[in-house]
Design a protein around this nucleic acid. Structure first.
Lengths: 418, 418
DNA sequence: GTTATTTAATTTAGGTGTCAAAATAAAAAT
DNA sequence: ATTTTTATTTTGACACCTAAATTAAATAAC
């Protein structure tokens, strides 16, 4: 039941393979464009076939997109040995537009500049402080990232059609304000307003978990799935959800909180002040606070959380009973949380992601097994689980995907205005 | 934060007030029709205004629908004292089509016959046995219900355009097979296939929790909401979810299971064989098994579960300590389950429904308060909770709504064929 | 009590987008 | 060289919708 996410082949395209159901009807031009981008390259015949439109419509739509410079034909040798007139493949013109995707976090930020076809043109990484900061400070850091990635890719701010930013916390996607974030020392910070003062490009702001989720939908294993969940285990436990081919943000557009679902009545104390949150059993601070007891007074339990955790993990691998127990219990609670997700959403796939998964790898199989055991399966198809320890470049790419998906329609629509 | 669901006014219409986003585009005719049905009556000007279409389109669309006998003008005196030519209201012709909705359960079944406008024309109720039965037996009971409700409404099987059936269990909505149901003594029963042998009308089968949810979406307080949850507490704990104006059924189309989310690692034993399920703390059998201890040897703890529960509740109200504790704990666990739903879905509203809510009313406020306390609210809008102890007529109406919503498009489309 | 004003509904001409079918194009098979 | 096959383009028709003009039915004003 464990799957490993593969690296994508070149020219594999990006973006969801399934069309989201939207209000009214998406213009055919846009559908065609997104199809080509999703599959990397496609012939008119493929398009007409896949989208269920007539060959004539495919011609008209592509002709327009080619005329405006968003698609182009490839004169590559077609390997296909079929009879008849050979297909001529189309592809997205990468230079037609650019977006920037940014992931903000403790320790380091990351930014990527991505072209219209979804390729990463440049990426930069900057150290970030470990403490809360003011909005103004964070805005400066963002500007710095944008400046750097533009310089590295030799692009102008004018080339950039949109910016996507993901950061931890509770973010109002619609207004672009940050209700709460561990990075900021103030609540209800109007990040998008502040951003607009310094930059002309439209901004799309969201929870970082949604960014990884989008990354999976655009570049990962979940591209062809209509319903799946991404669970991130980092300093907190986050979740992103794609339902009916679309990111689900809840009725109030402020994201979901797997980390603060309760797994125990009157349980362990959580950062949030409540008791029994999943996070209070699984996040690193939860493990760290038990480390002292487990490793004894002799061990260094005063250093940085990462280091303590690394030591603890090392000890557990070496057979240290108490250390192992800590991880094992965390795993069981994670399994419980996951089984609740399955029970409530019935997703086709759960992807476990986040830095922590990288070295929790060892007991991951155990978690999955425990999860399956905890899930009522009478007559049900089981839920597949994949573990994906991608680095934070992918988070930034997810942010870029968010910008791209939001901006594609308007770029294509400009066709008509021109 | 507690709201009470009001009875609807006459001519208030039925059906969701928000258009679901569907594949491609819904024919304008259908949109117009559904708008009129949703609002009970509407003038052409209202329609063109609400749907954002031109007045001319409203005329054409309604003219067609009137010509085919699906809509009609009302010559009622318009109360509006405005200037100008008065609007002429349109309404659905109720006789244009009929559907049947059925709720199957232990103790008794219920069926309604509903007209095209959503009015209940007739309803019947039949006693049902308390034990599991064969598929053949259940099919007979269904046929009997259909026969009765047809007779009572003086209708022919030919008038019926579709049947909706809701029953407890795990049901594959797409294939219409019952993977597991407490009503049946066999697994993977092909109910829809069996039904098709005896009846010509198309059948839509679903979990009963989805039926209440649909009832809330069509007739209840949730009509204008895009995202909400319905939690039913009966012999089990069920849930229905509307996301983006549409019933969510999960990736495998087999419903959701709030009752079997885990609220405690290695917790109380559940009917399903696992430990720590919400149901094992909240459902009636969970309370009954504690009743013996609480009420002592003297009390009658051998009768029917309903009676035991009634006694227990009575005692609790009279101040019996142990009895009260049982309800209180159940309430706290229910609150925990609800808070998890809020944390994971962020719905606009949770509706508590089901027979059990009727007399759990007393401690309902407490549950809601506890739920809010358990929900992380930093920067978030809180989730409204409503309690709605509708009787099972509504469940059957929900089943009828499912049939209606599924069949409306095809009825309207027949227009073109004719 | 006639005329102006206001709002509703219908008619009409025109635009957009899509399709089906015919025509054209480019290859392999005969 | 000719036929067959498949891909793409061209063409004419049509379905659907809109904007604007027109007609209809009421109230308000003089």
């Amino acid at each position: 039941m464990i799957g490993k996410v593969n690296e994508l082949e070149p020219h594999a395209g990006c973006g969801p393979l399934l069309q989201a159901f939207t209000d009214g009807s998406i213009p055919l031009r846009q559908q065609v464009f997104e199809y080509v981008r999703a599959y990397g390259r496609a012939a008119r015949a493929d398009i007409s076939n896949a989208l269920g439109i007539s060959a004539g419509s495919a011609t008209t739509a592509t002709a327009e997109l080619i005329a405006r410079g968003y698609l182009r034909e490839i004169d590559a040798i077609t390997k296909e040995t079929g009879r008849g007139r050979p297909k001529v493949a189309l592809e997205v013109v990468p230079q037609a537009a650019y977006v920037i995707g940014i992931k903000l976090a403790f320790k380091r930020h990351r930014a990527v500049l991505v072209d219209f076809a979804g390729n990463v043109v440049a990426d930069v990484s900057r150290p970030s402080s470990d403490v809360r900061r003011s909005l103004a400070q964070l805005l400066d850091e963002i500007s710095d990232l944008i400046h750097c990635v533009l310089a590295k890719s030799d692009r102008d701010p004018k080339d950039i059609r949109a910016v996507g930013i993901g950061l931890p916390g509770i973010i109002d996607y619609q207004t672009g304000s940050v209700a709460w974030s561990p990075l900021l020392n103030s609540e209800n910070a109007d990040l998008s307003v502040g951003f607009a003062l310094g930059h002309k490009m439209p901004l799309f702001l969201d929870n970082d978990a949604n960014m990884v989720t989008l990354a999976e939908l655009w570049f990962g294993e979940a591209r062809g799935l209509s319903d799946f969940a991404v669970v991130t285990v980092e300093s907190g436990v986050g979740m992103g959800l794609v339902l009916r081919n679309q990111l689900y943000r809840g009725a109030h557009g402020m994201g979901l909180e797997l980390g603060h679902t309760k797994v125990q009545l009157d349980g362990a104390l959580c950062q949030c002040g409540q008791r029994g949150c999943l996070e209070a059993y699984v996040a690193d601070y939860a493990l760290v606070r038990e480390a002292a007891t487990a490793l004894g007074q002799g061990a260094d339990t005063e250093g940085r959380p990462e280091d303590i955790l690394a030591t603890l993990f090392e000890q557990a691998k070496l057979g240290h009973q108490a250390a192992e127990t800590i991880f094992r219990r965390a795993g069981r609670y994670l399994a419980l949380g996951l089984s609740n997700v399955v029970q409530l959403f019935d997703p086709a796939l759960i992807i476990l992601s986040g830095e922590r998964m990288q070295y929790d790898y060892l007991y991951a199989e155990e978690v999955v097994a425990a999860m399956e055991e905890l899930t009522l399966s009478a007559g049900r198809k089981p839920c597949r689980v994949a573990i994906n320890a991608w680095d934070d470049l992918v988070w930034a790419r997810g942010a870029a995907a968010m910008a791209l998906s939001n901006v594609t329609a308007s770029i294509i629509d400009e066709v008509r205005v021109t």
